[in-house]
Design a protein around this nucleic acid. Structure first.
Lengths: 338, 338
DNA sequence: CAACCAAATGAAACCCGTTACATTTTAACG
DNA sequence: CGTTAAAATGTAACGGGTTTCATTTGGTTG
């Protein structure tokens, strides 16, 4: 690999001049500039940006901590992060953590060892070890989707509670009074928020909250299927199921259909996220649309602002949601209540 | 940020000793080691790995050029890359190129400017500019899925032609003689390989190849839906549709069902990839399973071997495929042939 | 106790850009 | 033509590790 000194020698100038010719062409005379350019092309010089980054102390790398890229919604968020990062001259180091805290910590360490400037995560968990603590200063981190209660950290999210409430009210307005909820991973505050919204709606409508209508899930297709089969086994079967994400809903729908139920005639199913597949299910899924790509973009933008000292407070950006009513929800069946 | 000199001063030793105490503890006396460790903890020293990488000339970063992370199959491949990279101490710089050659070139430049050691791509296209050409030497690149004809480059793929042939034969065995093919992006050699396999099967079975049964697609749900509506408009409608990926198949199935057709009674649909959603469609999709995660792992492993000089030839790794027969394909309807 | 070898440690070069500061060249004007 | 300011260019330090080579320390042996 050629370096700047070879170029300087070949062009018969100093390294400083070469550097200037490349960085601030107006600072060198046209004659010198062309001499330098000639030499650059001759040896095929490409500056070693590792040296630049090392020197400047800025890597222009951002770590993205994602539980699993296989999740379609997360993939959309990542896509948004990518685009915003590229626009501002940053690269995304993707960390597929699979929920493993060791892996998380390993990637977080990249920030502490100057391999990355900051970190974006889709989980509510502080991945840094204590050594990074600077009281009063914000961590070089932004949260997406999940809000952390214990740490003051910029966050881009949506009002999950209101969204879940809106969806539940939609089901109630259709006449459903026994509405099951298939939850997300226990560790996720999101799950609680959506549960809270679900309860809000029940309360507002004067319906009783029945703990036995809550089913565990983990945002996968399979977990939706499993929960659905438990729902089918419920003696006093609910007439509607609200799933905390679309994958779960799609998994649940399959189970119901296999059991011979018609959706939404026999049972209504609703999801959350509006992933691309939701519009292409049978029936198409009623869901809450989130601006996933914008989540990613906004988070990156916020993080870079933070890193570049443009913000010192931790903002909380709330993105809008939209209730998308499709064919998977319909009026409650008459007289099916036990 | 503390540096190694501060630690050395505090511990009362030289920087070389600190370095050794951390890298090769057995090379320093126990007494010194503990002095150093004490100092390290005292100032919270974390080595600047950017400096190390700069010095060593190895970044231990790999660029992954992906047309779109939103594609579920690609997401699985990325996941595999991640895992293998982490195991060998490398990080993945994710490049969501959206098919844009400028973006591609930009990320490829990271290799040429020493920001990454190598590159993995899911496309058949040389992203490097000419300046990297070293005749006789392999480029620091590995291809996944797509094979490049013009460049000698290690590749991890599967026998797409045989797989497409196997699927087409499956449909033929079910009695289908008019089988439509919804293709992938034109730019992708994959598309041609699968088309070739499809033709192979027709030829072998003595069926005529009908150009009017080929429909364009781009691997998205929507393109499958669009192609399906064109198929419905075909006066001499085929009784089976082979889609070059699962998204396309799922999109097509929805269109057929909306038009009142029953799958597979009225029309059979087959896909390719076996993404998670395929097992949860209605009906579950017959498809070709590819070991996506292994693709990613194998590619990373190959690239690292290449970078570390462990291989000098460009191997071609062919992964196995499996025909997964589910409910979306069935016997051809009797007497529907015009 | 001298001699010698191994182990431990230190000094300084090195990687490759950027940039502050110093110096030289050029241009302008009296 | 001399003076002066501005423009152009050069010199060298710097960033933070690793590593080579030299030196010191320690222990062993005759």
């Amino acid at each position: 690999m050629s370096n700047i000194r070879q170029v300087a020698t070949l062009a018969g100038v100093s390294v400083a001049t070469v550097s200037r010719a490349l960085q601030q062409p107006e600072r060198v005379s046209p004659k010198t500039r062309s001499k330098v350019m000639l030499a650059v092309n001759e040896v095929g010089y490409k500056p070693n940006l590792m040296a630049v980054k090392f020197r400047s102390g800025k890597t222009h790398n951002l770590v993205a901590l994602v539980p699993t890229v296989a999740n379609v919604f997360f993939a959309r968020v990542i896509s948004g992060m990518q685009i915003a990062a590229a626009q501002r001259g940053y690269a995304i180091l993707l960390a597929n953590t699979l929920g493993d805290e060791d892996i998380e910590a390993n990637y977080a360490k990249m920030v502490q060892t100057s391999q990355a400037d900051g970190l974006i995560q889709l989980r509510a968990h502080n991945p840094f070890d204590s050594s990074i603590n600077k009281p009063g200063e914000l961590l070089p981190m932004v949260n997406v989707c999940e809000v952390m209660s214990d740490i003051n950290c910029p966050v881009v999210t949506l009002d999950n509670r209101s969204a879940a409430k809106a969806m539940t009210l939609h089901l109630i307005e259709l006449g459903h009074s026994r509405i099951a909820l298939i939850k997300g991973p226990q560790s996720s505050p999101l799950t609680c928020e959506r549960l809270a919204g679900y309860r809000d709606a029940l309360t507002e409508a004067g319906l009783t909250f029945d703990e036995s209508l809550l089913y565990p899930g983990d945002f996968t297709l399979q977990s939706g299927h499993d929960a659905a089969s438990k729902i089918l086994a419920n003696k006093n079967r609910p007439s509607a199921v609200f799933c905390e994400n679309d994958e779960t809903a799609i998994g649940a729908m399959q189970c119901f259909k296999q059991a011979g139920l018609a959706i939404p005639r026999d049972i209504s199913v609703a999801g959350f996220d509006d992933i691309s597949f939701s519009a292409f299910c049978d029936p198409p899924l009623t869901t809450i649309a989130q601006p996933a790509e914008e989540f990613g973009q906004s988070a990156v933008s916020l993080l870079i602002d933070l890193l570049e000292g443009k913000i010192t407070k931790a903002p909380k950006v709330i993105m809008p949601f939209e209730l998308i009513v499709r064919g998977s929800t319909g009026p409650a069946p008459k007289g099916t209540l036990a």
